[in-house]
Amino acid sequence: MRRAVRAIPRGEVRSYSQVALYAGRPGAARGVGRELKTLENVPWWRVIRADGTLAPAVAVEQARRLKAEGVRLDGEGPLWRVRR
C-alpha cells in the first residue's frame, strides 16, 4: 500500500479504489482508507473518494495540502471536490 500511495505524483490524485488496484488488492478501497491512518511518511492527501470529494474528517487539511501542490478544488469547510 505504501508504495502505491508514494507513486502518486505531486499535484495529482487517485481514488481509494485506484490505490487498492495498484497495490494488488482490487475491491479493497475501504481497506485503503483504514490503512492510510496507520502509515507514516506517505502523501495520504493525494487519495480521494471516487466521486472527487474529500473525506469530511480530513477535508480541511487535505484541501490545504492539495492546493499547495496545485490541485484545483471547489468548496469550503469540510465539503471539497477536486476539479476534473
Rank of each mutant, 00 (worst) to 15 (best):
M1G: 08
M1K: 00
M1Q: 09
R3Q: 15
A4L: 09
V5E: 03
V5S: 02
R6E: 14
R6D: 12
A7E: 12
I8R: 06
P9W: 14
R10H: 10
R10K: 12
R10D: 05
G11I: 13
G11V: 07
G11F: 10
E12R: 15
E12H: 15
V13P: 00
V13Q: 03
S15E: 09
S15D: 02
S15I: 01
Y16V: 09
S17Y: 14
S17G: 03
S17L: 12
S17I: 03
S17K: 12
Q18C: 03
Q18A: 14
Q18P: 04
V19G: 04
V19L: 02
A20L: 05
L21N: 04
Y22A: 10
Y22F: 04
Y22K: 02
A23M: 08
G24L: 10
G24N: 08
G24A: 09
R25S: 14
R25G: 07
P26G: 13
P26T: 07
G27L: 01
A28P: 00
A28V: 06
A28N: 10
R30V: 08
R30N: 12
G31R: 05
V32H: 01
V32E: 04
V32T: 02
G33M: 09
G33I: 00
R34M: 15
E35L: 10
E35S: 07
E35W: 12
L36N: 10
L36C: 01
L36W: 08
K37E: 10
K37P: 01
T38P: 00
T38R: 12
L39V: 04
L39A: 05
E40T: 13
N41H: 13
V42N: 00
V42W: 09
P43A: 04
W44Y: 14
W45H: 07
W45Y: 14
R46E: 03
R46W: 01
V47C: 01
V47E: 00
R49V: 06
R49F: 07
A50I: 10
D51C: 07
D51V: 04
D51M: 13
G52M: 05
G52Y: 05
G52F: 09
T53M: 02
T53Q: 12
L54I: 07
L54R: 00
L54A: 04
A55G: 08
A55H: 13
P56M: 06
P56I: 02
P56K: 06
A57P: 00
A57R: 11
A57W: 03
A59G: 08
A59P: 03
V60A: 10
V60M: 04
V60F: 02
E61Q: 10
E61L: 05
Q62A: 09
Q62N: 07
A63S: 05
A63C: 11
R64F: 09
R64W: 02
R65S: 09
R65L: 15
R65V: 06
L66F: 00
L66I: 01
K67P: 01
A68M: 14
A68Y: 09
A68P: 05
A68D: 11
E69C: 06
E69P: 02
G70D: 11
G70Q: 11
V71G: 07
R72F: 03
L73K: 03
L73S: 05
L73R: 01
D74K: 14
D74F: 06
G75D: 03
G77K: 11
G77W: 14
P78V: 12
P78G: 04
P78H: 11
L79K: 15
L79D: 15
L79T: 14
W80M: 03
R81Q: 02
R81S: 01
R81I: 00
R83H: 11
R83S: 07
R83L: 15
R83C: 04
